[in-house]
Amino acid sequence: MSAALASRRQFLTLLGISAAAVGCGTATAGGAGSREQVTTLKYQGSVGAVTLPELAADLGHLGNLELEWVGNTISGPQDIQSAATGQIHFGGAFNGAVVKLAASKAPIKAVISYYGADRHAYSGYYVLEDSPVRSARDLVGKKVGMNTLGAHAQAVLEMYLSRNGLSKADAAGVESLVVPPVNTEQALRQKQIEVGVLGGVLRDKALAGGGIRPLFTDFELLGAFSAGSYVMTERFIEQNPDTVRTFVTGVAKAIEWSRTTPREQVIARMTDIVTRRGRNEDTSTLKYWQSYGVAETGGRISDKEFQIWLDWLGERGETKKGQLKASDLYTNEFNGYGKG
């Protein structure tokens, strides 16, 4: 077995996806030769939160499309591999994870941005108020809790360490651990970890409790940017273009609705959605919601949102430099927001 093939198989194993499954592009698409397009989209949600597609559906922006919830996930890489293998019709992940999956020859395409960092929506790397950790070098030998490995939180952490002068050997001494987001604050306060990555409503809830401070944030490190995209298989897009157009445009409208509607009204709508869907979820954290953080109008994607991670993965040796072009990883063709 060649080194390149071994590396690819190791990566696919980490994502929990077989090379055979990826190669098939098995997303349900109404059957070969069928003229009917899929109108019920399977997806994974997030506990106690309202995803943009869920918001779009509630606002009536998905037309005749229906969403079928099949469970929840806290892992972007898991979500997009589920989309790549046809278990769900769309999945969302950090753009670096999308690059990795595309580099493994998975037949996927990003269709719209769905989260990012701005002055309201960001991920912070928090320590206890009296923690001795005050610099990147202080992290050596420490545990950092995050939602999943190989995705946004770990990538930003590694960028922070590199930009602050740590060698690869020193950076290897910083231990990244998987901690479910709903448990991160508790793990930090109980000193099971020295640093906890917190974002969104869970971050603001933890801050309201006091006693913690940020070491740094992704917004401070990188500025405002769209960080993740929803992806679909190329086969599904080809066989269901009208469905994809309705979905993407509907999500784009939901993004802009959340920007232009008074925050209190957005929170009230989200609270109503979570209450009505009956999944026995806590709605108390929704009052801390401020923004989805999507940078571009209507969630349109640009090269820069993938190029930064192409460069980063190339430097780490996880992808070959020049193997992929940013423009090949996404399409704005189906985003009709603002097109008349």
Rank of each mutant, 00 (worst) to 15 (best):
Y125A: 05
S75E: 05
E68R: 11
G71Y: 09
N72F: 12
S104Q: 15
A106K: 04
Y114C: 03
G60D: 04
I80V: 15
T85H: 05
G116E: 07
A117P: 05
T73D: 13
E66H: 10
N72W: 08
T85N: 10
T85I: 15
P107N: 03
N64R: 14
A103F: 14
P77V: 11
A103L: 09
L62P: 04
L67E: 05
V127Y: 08
D58G: 14
P77Y: 09
E68Q: 13
I108A: 02
F94Y: 14
A102G: 10
I112R: 00
I80L: 13
F94L: 02
L101A: 15
D58A: 15
A110D: 01
V111N: 00
L62C: 08
R119C: 08
S123W: 09
G92R: 02
N72Y: 13
G96K: 01
I74Q: 14
A97I: 06
G91L: 08
Y126P: 07
R119N: 12
A97F: 08
D79A: 12
I80C: 14
H61F: 13
S123C: 08
S82E: 12
D118S: 10
S75K: 11
V127H: 08
S82Q: 12
G71D: 14
L59P: 12
A102L: 13
Q87P: 10
W69E: 07
A106R: 03
T85V: 14
L67Q: 04
H61P: 10
L59H: 07
V99C: 15
L67V: 06
L62T: 05
G60L: 06
A84N: 05
F94A: 01
